[in-house]
Write a protein that binds this DNA or RNA. Structure first.
Lengths: 226, 226
DNA sequence: ACCTGAACACCGTTCAAGT
DNA sequence: ACCTGAACACCGTTCAAGT
């Protein structure tokens, strides 16, 4: 008769055992609450009630940790993406999904910039590219068009990330905009004729609407290719 | 009779005296040769044959140093910009000037992302915006259009910076592209139908041409606004 | 196999002490 | 007024030692 051991099988660990998943989840929580500068291996180890070296057993280094955290967010975005009727709407939906995710997790924007050809970016790139055929874009132009869309999205993503870095979790978004508008308005009109002219538009300014306006501009240019 | 001191007037210092200008110049040299990670106050102090604390007498902190270095590069780009005949060409010239500067100084791309509303960025933003009137863009749409152009430029800038961070001063750009193309080609065609389709285009790939193709796409969209 | 936590080799920044 | 360089408070990462 074989003796049954009461040891826990390898696939079924203690609730509080360390794993890459738990580490990534904790990292995302720290990134969301304390920003990019708040994520240190010491802070992460403290939250997981372990030593900083233990994390290195599951994760190679900080780059891999940030990449895994970004993958986690992007995967969720792509999964929740409802099928859209037309290709034009699909592109807007993808772009908006990324934009909203970065609004909630600004550090994702910085990470996307840092590793633009990582898996999570390739998923977005591919789903953008898939729509271009349906839009009637010639084969030869599809690559450039998809790259343009992705570059624009990454540009806005990076700016949102740096805004968050600068102003933290500042709830007074309107106040920041008003301050910028006032600063622009008082610039030398000889040196900055355009900025002084559009300064007032900074006040009643909708980030999301402006982002979509840019997407529409590129889409209009793409449709002109036919 | 007043005694003439032989002390050097304040405006005319010793050749090797420290100054913000000399510090910024040295910082740019280090950034160009060793990349962003090479610029430390210790390395900078060593190159200037002084103590690290001395730098802080002329520069508040590392952020100010990076901003000043970026201003220096951007100012040169904007100054060398020849007047272009039409507004369409002017936008392309500005964009190309920024693109080329970032090609030589990839760290500028990262810094532009970090501080998008700094003086040097405002100059670019303004000179882009000035062309839109001549393009016949309605007043209400000019702000969005200029922002879209800048966001796209910043997006490409950030990607170039991260490429440089990854591959350093790697002269084998073609080899890197070939490697990426090979990687894309062997991806699962079910999961990445678009990426696998365009993989071969990564091989004979011209960064500058692709960047300008994106600018032209946005310009075509802008011209459709009339 | 996995975890601990001290130790190492760095950072940016400060500051008492010099000239 | 400007410079020096040791010191401080951090980092990411490693690794001998534990379980």
């Amino acid at each position: 008769m074989r003796v049954m051991t009461n040891s826990i099988p390898q696939t079924e660990r203690r609730r509080d055992a360390l794993s890459k998943e738990r580490i990534v989840e904790a990292a995302i929580e720290i990134l969301d609450s304390s920003g990019e500068s708040g994520l240190t291996f010491r802070a992460l180890a403290a939250r997981l009630a372990t030593g900083s070296g233990a994390i290195y057993w599951h994760v190679a280094n900080k780059d891999e940790l940030l990449a895994a955290a970004t993958d986690h967010i992007v995967a969720r975005v792509m999964a929740e993406m409802a099928k859209s009727p037309g290709p034009r709407e699909a592109v807007r939906t993808i772009a908006l999904g990324v934009f909203d995710a970065i609004d909630v997790h600004p550090w994702v924007g910085a990470q996307m910039q840092r590793a633009p050809w990582h898996t999570s970016m390739l998923q977005i790139f591919d789903s953008l590219g898939r729509q271009l055929e349906a839009l009637g874009v010639p084969q030869a132009a599809q690559f450039d068009a998809a790259t343009a869309l992705l570059s624009y999205i990454l540009g806005v993503a990076g700016q949102n990330a740096s805004n968050a870095r600068m102003h933290g979790q500042d709830p007074d978004r309107a106040g920041v905009l008003a301050k910028t508008a006032a600063h622009w308005a008082q610039l030398d009109a000889e040196e900055y004729p355009f900025v002084t002219k559009v300064a007032h538009q900074m006040n009643d300014h909708d980030d999301t609407a402006q982002f979509l306006a840019g997407i529409d501009l590129i889409l209009a240019g793409i449709e002109a290719l036919r």
